[in-house]
Design a protein around this nucleic acid. Sequence first.
DNA 1: GATTGACTTAGACATTGTCCATTGTAGGAT
DNA 2: ATCCTACAATGGACAATGTCTAAGTCAATC
Lengths: 138, 138
Amino acid sequence: MSDLLERLRGRGWRMTAQRRVVAEVLDGEHVHLTADEVHARAVERLPEISRATVYNTLGELVSLGEVLEVATDHRAKRYDPNAHRPHQHLVCAHCGAIRDVHPNGNPLSDLPDSERFGFTVSDVEVTYRGICPNCASA
Amino acid sequence: MSDLLERLRGRGWRMTAQRRVVAEVLDGEHVHLTADEVHARAVERLPEISRATVYNTLGELVSLGEVLEVATDHRAKRYDPNAHRPHQHLVCAHCGAIRDVHPNGNPLSDLPDSERFGFTVSDVEVTYRGICPNCASA
DNA sequence: GATTGACTTAGACATTGTCCATTGTAGGAT
DNA sequence: ATCCTACAATGGACAATGTCTAAGTCAATC
């Protein structure tokens, strides 16, 4: 993600302090923040950044394919910057902890044509649920 | 689902007009309503039913394992009464249409032990996304 | 260093979900 | 059949998440 800013600039993205901060907050692996969590962290670095800007910027990053939107919990959307390496998610039903996981095979190819109903299927989101070791021992 | 009411009564569920109506609204295959959609349909049959009761009743049906909560869109939770036949969902990214689908194999077994990180994995939710024939031709 | 169109802001608004104090009632006991 | 009581329903306030708009600001270009 370190070269994300370069890539975005190359696509004609106007570079502002706000966008830089949002991108920095999302930097790293295994990051799965909600929009308001991103906002909270962004405010620490740039106190005057507004909620609307964070929502807008996240939406743009998703449109550009640089960040994935995932529905791992049944509440707020989470934003996953690890968009360029296919993976799925394993979620603790008790504490909400999230791990990136890599199932065998390609889940997309498990859906036969007869089950596609004429859809052009382009994407699949898999969420495994269970209890993490911490919660199991508690 | 026609025998749902019997099953619930057998479990000591107190039968009220409101619960009956919610169960009736959910009856059928390929039903994927949001809580507020369930409420809207319930009001048609029982005008004084409250939103809170619908939310409570749906929550109970989920706890009892009679209805599944699915996060197919990235907005409101949807409630799927088809809880006793394993299936996954195919969603149109454009119009939101939802189909029940049955991928090959068991998605749960595609997650190797080395990718479970000590979790006790009990469940998997798969959402395929694409464009439906209607939206493709428009 | 002026210009301009894209970006940001603050806050109102919309949608979805939860909580609580009060009122009502299903189903068992009499 | 009537009464009791624990469980359920109500309505409205509140919380959490997400969207929109009008006005002000600024990055990139010239």
